[in-house]
């Protein structure tokens, strides 16, 4: 286990936050939870289905993880605010992963509605973790209105396209005074490792694990990648250069001459 970190007043060991969407069964989710060693999981709210059996909350409680409700599916600040308040009532937590989507094909955040919702929810006492684009200015605006973290996307939700603009993610990290959690786009372990190598404080991962052929194995792979990336970040990578730099010294290299030819 790596050293602990904080979001707002909460201390966490694992730097991997697991999205619970997309798991084909509670059993697969349970095995992925164990393999991921996560301590924080997202859940959503939908109209109550009287035929539904077994609550996701029982699964998460049995696994000993904390719940982070989201506002997935909301397209306006108004809907996101009401959904956050419903989540506070349903889950007895004032933490909210704020999603305000602007387009149903890309599922990209609506910046204007997002900032408005974040500001209102902070004022209402929520600990707001906004899903945002990789725009450093927007990340700054979200921090300025009091968000407890910023969660930039690597690429669109569920796309598995990894981190399309690592330079923007780096700029967000350099300037942020709150934790930066890469959210969306991770397709496999190396994407999560890159996020951590860039200096993200954590990674949120859903589809990459839940829709993998073997979710528990991918959960373990991404858990290790997050730890590896974090270690590598702390270790300090070498600079990139255009030409080679020999790792073996030139001094003391023997000179053999050509056979049969005197010096």
């Amino acid at each position: 286990m790596s050293e602990s970190w904080r979001i707002a007043d909460r201390e966490l060991g694992s730097r991997l936050i697991l999205g619970t969407g997309g798991f084909a069964s509670h059993d697969l989710l349970t095995r992925a939870l164990r393999a991921s060693a996560t301590e924080l999981c997202t859940v959503a709210l939908r109209r109550l289905d009287p035929a539904a059996r077994g609550s996701i909350l029982d699964v998460l409680e049995a696994a000993g993880v904390q719940v982070l409700p989201n506002t997935a599916g909301c397209f306006t600040a108004r809907d996101a605010i009401v959904t956050a308040r419903l989540a506070r009532e349903a889950f007895a937590t004032d933490w909210i992963k704020l999603e305000v989507i602007g387009d149903d094909r890309t599922l990209l955040p609506d910046a204007v509605e997002l900032v408005a919702a974040a500001e209102a929810l902070v004022d209402d006492g929520f600990v707001v973790l906004p899903y945002t684009t990789d725009d450093p200015v927007l990340a700054r605006r979200l921090e300025d209105v009091g968000c407890a973290a910023v969660m930039p996307l690597g690429s669109p939700i569920g796309s598995g396209m990894g981190i399309r603009n690592p330079y923007n993610i780096s700029i967000i990290i350099e300037r942020a005074g709150v934790p930066v959690i890469l959210d969306a786009g991770v397709g496999t372990a190396s994407d999560a490792a890159l996020a951590m190598e860039l200096g993200c404080d954590g990674v949120l991962c859903a589809s990459a694990i839940s829709r993998a052929h073997d979710p528990a194995a991918m959960a373990r792979a991404i858990r290790l990648a997050v730890e590896s990336g974090r270690l590598a970040r702390g270790a300090g990578r070498i600079p990139r250069r255009h030409y080679a730099e020999a790792s073996t010294p030139q001094d003391g290299l023997p000179v053999f001459g050509v056979p049969g030819v005197a010096e």
């Binding site: 798991f23 997202t42 939908r46 109209r47 109550l48 909350l57 349903a90």
Partner: peptide, 10 residues
């Protein structure tokens, strides 16, 4: 009236 419940998501 909207009655909502927890589901997997996010």
């Amino acid at each position: 009236i909207e009655v909502v419940a927890a589901i997997q998501g996010g």
